[in-house]
């Protein structure tokens, strides 16, 4: 079998500040294959966006220290020259952002911004070709009357159309990897559904790899093949989507699942918050970074949680499903304790 399209190994991203070094991402490893979708889930400060920006080499070399390895089709990205990175960005790897109104330049026409993205990687293309391509892409993402809307400014588009235009811009050079950073967070729910459908259709059509970054487990559950759960800059759980959603093994993932209500479950389901606040990345807690907020710590003998960082290793559910937790029988604890509280309707009768 060929190497996966993207292999991230032992990635660490640090930002030296006046107060000390902020370690935004620590020893992160994951991979994505063509045609597959990886969902990265985590809260603000978990390092999910920072790690993806590193894949495009978007961090300023003066302010960020990046170690580890990021390989795209076998080519190392960490330490790559700016000129080579530019050939990669927007061409091999494209990125779309959360707030399309802020992410598109307010002063330039939508079509111009798309054409610019095309021409920078197709230097021989004429302005007219680039414009034609821009119209074609706007049409492809479902913008009505693309030959007219191409000359609109971003503020003349609705929120959903702006995100479509953003996607069109991302896909204009047929990238093999698309990174979508909270692509639907700013959108209304019916528009979100449209955009998620569109992303899935386009992925099938272009057979690209997709990384979708979000805090919304529902989006992950619908879109992703694999899931990476991040907390305080580290992967805490990683594996196939369905496996992780049904048999989560890390108490932080349990916490996320029990913090969100949904529109179908039994109304006797409890919403159980994770206590406390996310940790400071300047001085993260010792041991497992989640231990100060972990309500299952009493099940781990001694002070292992606060002294020793658990490794990201397979738990009890096969080699695909990795967790970073000292709990030894987490699947059983989840089934017996957590599930009855948060989803009584899903508990199977013995």
């Amino acid at each position: 079998m060929d190497d996966p399209l993207l292999v991230v190994e032992d990635l660490t991203v640090q930002f030296p500040t006046e107060d000390g070094v902020v370690t935004a991402v620590s020893n992160l490893s994951y991979q994505v294959e063509l045609g597959k979708t990886l969902g990265i889930v985590g809260e603000s400060g978990s390092g999910k966006s920072v790690s993806s920006m590193a894949v495009l080499g978007l961090h300023d070399a003066r302010s960020a220290r990046i170690t580890g390895s990021i390989r795209v089709r076998g080519t190392e990205v960490v330490g790559m020259s700016e000129a080579k990175l530019r050939k990669l960005r927007g061409n091999e790897i494209a990125m779309i952002f959360q707030d399309a109104l802020a992410a598109l330049h307010p002063f330039y026409r939508v079509g111009g911004q798309l054409a610019e993205a095309y021409r920078v990687h197709h230097p021989s293309a004429s302005k007219r070709d680039a414009r034609r391509k821009a119209i074609e892409m706007l049409d492809r993402v479902g913008i009505p009357k693309p030959d007219r809307r191409v000359d609109d400014f971003p503020h003349q588009f609705s929120g959903g159309m702006r995100q479509r235009a953003m996607i069109a811009m991302g896909l204009i050079n047929d990238p093999s990897l698309l990174i979508a950073d909270e692509p639907t967070t700013a959108l209304d729910v019916t528009v979100q559904a449209q955009i998620l459908d569109l992303l899935q259709d386009l992925q099938r059509e272009f057979n690209s790899a997709v990384i979708i970054i979000t805090h919304d487990l529902g989006v992950i559950a619908e879109m992703a093949d694999d899931v990476l759960v991040m907390y305080a800059g580290r992967a805490v759980e990683y594996g196939p989507c369905k496996e992780i959603m049904v048999h989560p093994e890390m108490p932080y993932t349990w916490g996320l699942l029990s913090s969100v209500p949904d529109v179908t479950s039994d109304t006797s389901a409890r919403m159980i918050p994770i206590p406390g606040n996310p940790p400071s990345l300047l001085s993260p807690p010792t041991g497992c970074a989640f231990h100060p907020r972990c309500v299952h710590r009493d099940k781990v003998p001694g002070d292992l949680c606060s002294t020793t960082l658990p490794e990201l290793i397979p738990g009890g559910r096969g080699p695909q499903h990795l967790k970073r937790c000292h709990l030894s029988n987490s699947d059983a604890i989840y089934e017996a304790e957590v599930l009855p509280e948060i989803a009584p309707d899903l508990v199977e009768e013995p």
Partner: peptide
Amino acid sequence: RTAKAKGL
């Protein structure tokens, strides 16, 4: 950031 991500 978008402009950079386009490879400009």
